[in-house]
Nucleic acid binder design. Structure first.
Lengths: 206, 206, 206, 206
DNA sequence: TATGAATGAGCTTTCATTCAT
DNA sequence: AATGAATGAAAGCTCATTCAT
């Protein structure tokens, strides 16, 4: 009986993920408003009513999608900066992991930026508050690495740690967007130092 | 007689701008798809038919909005980097001007990023080709400043000029988005050097 | 003063006819519903308000058009069958006149059949009652010719005179429609007897 | 299970026919442009969306209507002229069948001629090409009967067979229209010979 | 429990008509 | 008297959502 219900639950979860996978592809390809619930149902080979058993409305499906993906990314990035090593190693791993995550989940990234669909404009706004908090928490964690490096005399205190965290994250995103937009022309550097050097090395001659 | 027709034209222009102002606010608040032409008409206190006298359809109204605003921004930014002075002065003026433009046109900026409305993900995609070309042209102009600085031995050649241009531009945008989203918490630095230093000064101790 | 007002009235009539001429062309080209009052106004180089000075609405303009044209056709056909001569000469003149009228007024004929636009289906229905009465009156006049011919022993009484009138009129229309539809292939016979013979000569061998 | 799906399909077909019946009545009463999809939906007691499940747009519904009816008429008329017998018997049966079809399907006939909805004038133009071909094919078949009669020496060769076919067909239509418009006053002759005599017997005394 | 037929609010757009100038 | 800017009812159509089976 417990086994039975477990099997059922597993089956349900599998169906839920099947729907989300189809929705992810469609939303990232065409944008939120250009995908209909019927289209998702048809491609996932479920009845439209079944979709509404799993997600109470279109918005919920969309949010669940974002949440699930953000979860995976967050875990991977947290893991990268929490692993042992000095500040430079941690940043290096962060740059590398962010690149891998982006490149292995192009559809999801597109989803993030495909359509903010609401009162929002900024890369964060329009996302679920849960996701925004998650990103904020991560940036502070990243800032702590800079702070620790500065305290250790390893980094110059050229800006506030949080500013530096935002700057590094943004620098990575910039390279990744260039790559996403035109993979032939722009390559996300395999060596993380290429990006870190923009922060680490002096641009202006002394 | 000429006076008469001038008054009419002025009146027409005023109405057109009134519609655009209302549309700008609504689109930037709620996104393209969540604003109806009736809503715009009602808020602008015109009959729905009158909107269609000025803009042949919703898409045209939206594009006209983007184009007009992009025009103003482009002019301001070009002026900033074309004014006399060495490379550092030009970049400084650019950072400052971009900040002013953003902060004085928050609604417009929201519009730019409110909704890409398509299968796109990148911040440029989904925009009118005219605007994309304009942005691209500007980035190349910005890249030339870096290139000139490198040739003059004033900058270290730590990355390709175009990459540096994109990086600086995105760095500014990122801080401005943080400010836009939460003006109390995040302040766009009044001193441009705060941003430029991230690129200009060594982060890692030698 | 009387001269003055006469000149004005003439001018007004000229304008009215100018509008009707433009409307006739547009309606016959595109059909009633596919022509807008604005289109007519623009092509006639009048303000839209001016059209409404002459015709209280679109329907009225259309009806006026039909009425005026029907007037001209009716006059021509009546004249044809009222002119002196025996029954055969009258019918001959009728066939010839109907041909000339059709061929010289293709646009108008198209107008008649372009769109019945109402609860109607038949070639008469949907037309103004005035026009229907006019046509009915004409057919009776035509029937009288057949009756007179039969009474004079000049025609076989193979059917009621009214039936014969309808048949002859329809025979002419048939030839003319064939011609209208494909002027190269089907020619309306220059010699009226070609049509009359279908009625006048035996088809079945005795 | 199969029974189940059959019942569903029958139900669907019934609904489709219900919509078409309502549409037929409305279109034939008021003409294509003067009937709205909402009106059809309301009268058929369906939601507007349901109409669009059956017919992808208004035009399709209209065409489906014409096609279905034309199909039935075509079959009946072909059957009439293909049944055994000499040319006169075939023509007689044709005249009779056409009369029956018209009189039993007044609404449909009205539909055919209710509105050509275009720049067309001719009774055929504006119809679907499929229907026009069907009519054309039928007229040629009818022409062959005349030709065969002429070759057999049974008919005088007073005109080209195709012309005679068109003439007979239009003659029937004309009388049927008179009847349709005013059933009390004009009677479509019960005896087909009344019409055929106009073609078959000499009108003018020798 | 899963289905998908049915719903109808709400969208964009057109155009006959009005009326202040 | 002539104008044409302004109006808004109403059209065709879509699609998120519901609920009887």
């Amino acid at each position: 009986m417990s086994k039975e219900s477990t099997r059922r639950e597993r089956e349900k979860l599998r169906q839920r993920q099947e729907i989300m996978a189809v929705a992810l592809n469609l939303f990232s390809e065409k944008g939120y408003h250009s995908v209909s619930m019927h289209e998702i149902a048809a491609k996932a080979e479920f009845a439209i009513g079944t979709l509404y058993k799993f997600f109470s409305n279109k918005e919920e499906l969309y949010k669940a999608l974002l949440l699930e993906q953000s979860d995976r990314f967050d875990a991977a990035l947290f893991k990268a900066i929490e692993s042992p090593g000095d500040e430079i190693m941690k940043l290096r791993r962060y740059v590398q992991t962010k690149g891998e995550v982006f490149q292995n989940n192009a559809a999801t990234i597109r989803l993030y930026f495909a359509e903010t669909r609401g009162a929002s404009f900024n890369l964060l706004a329009g996302l679920d508050q849960v996701i925004r908090n998650r990103i904020e928490r991560f940036l502070h964690q990243l800032a702590e690495i800079f702070e620790s490096g500065i305290r250790a005399g390893r980094f110059h205190p050229i800006a506030e740690p949080y500013i530096l965290a935002v700057a590094l994250d943004n620098l990575c995103s910039t390279f990744l967007f260039l790559w996403l937009e035109n993979p032939e022309k722009h390559v996300y550097p395999e060596n993380p130092d290429t990006i870190l050097n923009i922060l680490f090395k002096a641009l202006v001659n002394p």
